[in-house]
């Protein structure tokens, strides 16, 4: 990953990272003292996002249902970081918010966070490619009987 990540792209990749990846890096940076004295701005909270969809026929919006998420806000070096991820995992959400704040604050350790994001993106792309490799043989062209 050469170009600097946008705020949104970074948040997406941190939400796609595994709990182990996030916690390992956040704990290491904390142990090194790289995060100074971080603060929790919004405690990790499990809640729901109501998913609204626009259907394609009359282009009307409706609520499909709710999605379980965990969100968190943290501060590092006086700068806020944010995370939201699917399902119930407060620790992963806290770690992601801390790492997001590291990047937002422009600390030297940002490079490590961005490297993690790059690894997540590579893995996800590989998984999507593998998914396609499994289902592509089911592409079909049916013949019509005369």
């Amino acid at each position: 990953m050469t170009a600097k990540l946008t705020t949104e792209h970074r948040a997406e990749l941190l939400s796609a990272a595994t709990r182990d990846e996030l916690v390992a890096l956040a704990e290491r940076l904390l142990a090194q003292g790289a995060l100074g004295e971080p603060a929790v701005l919004v405690p990790p909270e499990v809640g729901m996002v109501m998913l609204q969809v626009r259907e394609p026929i009359a282009e009307e919006r409706f609520y499909l249902g709710e999605v379980l998420v965990t969100r968190c806000g943290a501060e590092v070096a006086g700068v806020a970081g944010w995370s939201m991820r699917g399902d119930d995992d407060r620790i992963a959400a806290l770690a992601a918010a801390l790492l997001d704040a590291v990047c937002a604050a422009g600390l030297p350790e940002s490079a490590e966070v961005e490297e993690l994001c790059a690894a997540v993106e590579r893995r996800r792309r590989r998984e999507i490619d593998e998914e396609w490799a499994r289902i592509a043989p089911t592409l079909v062209t049916f013949e019509e009987l005369p």
Partner: peptide, 28 residues
């Protein structure tokens, strides 16, 4: 018992990454 934290952005199912897609109306 869980709070609603947010409403999503309006999703378009054009963004759906299919793992299955069939049509009974058109052969191709």
């Amino acid at each position: 018992s869980i709070p609603r934290l947010a409403y999503s952005e309006v999703a378009s199912t054009d963004e759906l990454r299919v793992i299955r897609r069939i049509s009974s109306a058109f052969r191709n």
